[in-house]
Design a binder for these strands. Sequence first.
DNA 1: AAGAGGCCCTGATAGC
DNA 2: TGCTATCAGGGCCTCT
Length: 288
Amino acid sequence: MPELPEVEVVKQSLNKKIKEKKVKKVLVRNRNLRKKVPLNFQNILINEKILKVGRFSKYLILHFSNNKKCLIHLGMSGTIHFIKKNKKNIITNTSFYNSPKLPKKHNHIEILFDDCKIIYNDPRRFGFFEIFENEQLLKERFDHLGPEPFNSQFNLNYICSKLMGKQKNIKNFLIDQSFVSGIGNIYASEILFLSRINPIKKAKNLNKSDYKNILINSKKVLNEAINKGGSTIKDFKNISGRHGGFQSEFKVYQREGLKCKRSNCVGIIKKKSISNRSTFFCNSCQKE
DNA sequence: AAGAGGCCCTGATAGC
DNA sequence: TGCTATCAGGGCCTCT
């Protein structure tokens, strides 16, 4: 599922549901994720309170009262489900909206509280859980990542210094987490469309006005996606099982063969594989 | 050293 | 119906 906006939506809803709650029980049903869930995972969390749920880039961070941090990455298909106990004291999947039932397969981890629990589900197992002893060690984990688009470090000077003279195409730069973190395959296409830049254009061939557009539109696209509750392509849901709403706003992503949405543009949306990832762009207003 | 490509894994869908 | 091939939103490792 998850690029920065989807992870932000999960973070916000988790904060509403489990902040200040004390972990009563942890069940690791399947340790096999991209990295093995630590053996002592249960012992570290038990009886600890969740102070808050944070996020950096596409990572969720559970802050615990013993100062330890649990880093969660949702990979491609990870979802977190919130389940509340009902009056009969039976835990049921009570979501606010017409949510699909909790999946039967691939429920890897359950974290139980007094009156509710969360379940981590991940069919493709590209997600992972890691424990960090303190804030410092967690920060070091992020050392290799570039700033988020919202960070003031992500500015014109920074973009110039990173892109000038580089052979690499701009699409691959946008999904390169060491350049800017949080943008994935969907939003990269959307950002380049708004910026009227062809995705295969080499970074060195962009001008200052292109850089400016990338700067502005990165923030714009991600903010709008967050406000719409993220995007749902196949299986992204917020923790109550509700789908995101940004996919209907896509200008190019998954619109191959359709008319360009820009007013007065007669272009057609094309799909191109760049480094084995599908990329969408308008053949008229994003000319090479 | 930068940049491209392969790979981890399951499931949904398309085509025969 | 049931096979096979292709594709999917990420990130890390390896090779050139």
